[in-house]
Design a protein around this nucleic acid. Structure first.
Lengths: 118, 118
DNA sequence: CATAAATGAAACCTTTTGGTTGCACAAATA
DNA sequence: TATTTGTGCAACCAAAAGGTTTCATTTATG
């Protein structure tokens, strides 16, 4: 199953897990021991994180090491960045509009009160 | 009620709404008309978005305009950025370790096969 | 070998999500 | 004034999320 990276980040426990294993890959039990919910609950979070590509689980003997995949976060920062561009363009358009108005004010004869442009 | 901005972004419909109103503020009905779910469903999404500060709803006559608040996205990019720093430092530490090993190799006498240091 | 450790997964439960329909109400309009 | 329009909100519902306990399985280890 594949899953949305935004959804993966939605849960605070999952974000904490990511921070934790960013420092150093840990096996499932080690990750779980840092939280006060059950190992199974943490395992489910890890599964979700791996389903959205933020984590890979590497078998090593009887343990499985959880390794962070921060490249996946690019999808998030890309979205935010693209969003900012839309937002910025919006103001560029407004600026352009205001400039145009300014230009018109200068080149147009000052109309009388109640005057009407052709 | 206040809400987590990551949770606000978790739903794809909500991200679409944000993109939509980034271009131009729209009233609730206009937003809803762009989706094929009910107006009430969109209203709920808008409520969630406003609860996490990504949107403000401005009353104007009988309409309510939905205005994007992209500053709130800083919380997201900040988190991602901070995360990348942790990740990067991790490799810096590894680099430092490898450099140290390299240095030791150079200064230590080449041991015999099966030889033991110290 | 017997046992402990690490994990995956099933079964189950409660709360949250995302959706619906229906109704009330204020603002605009014919 | 009567009616339409835009909206908020309650009640309800199904599915997903997040958690638990329990059990099976594989790998290390005394």
């Amino acid at each position: 199953m594949t899953r949305d990276v935004f959804q993966g980040l939605a849960d605070p426990t999952r974000r904490e897990i990511l921070t934790m294993i960013a420092h150093k890959s840990l096996n499932v039990n080690s990750v779980a021991s840092n939280f006060d919910v059950s190992r199974t609950a943490i395992y489910k979070h890890l599964k979700i994180l791996s389903e959205c590509g933020l984590v890979v689980l590497q078998q090593q003997g009887r343990e499985r090491y959880c390794e962070a995949r921060p490249e996946k976060l690019n999808e998030v920062s890309d979205w935010v960045e693209q969003y900012r561009q839309i937002w910025t363009k919006r103001f560029d358009a407004l600026d352009a509009y205001l400039m145009k108005i300014q230009a018109q004010k200068k080149t147009t004869a000052k109309p009388k009160k109640h005057g009407r442009k052709k």
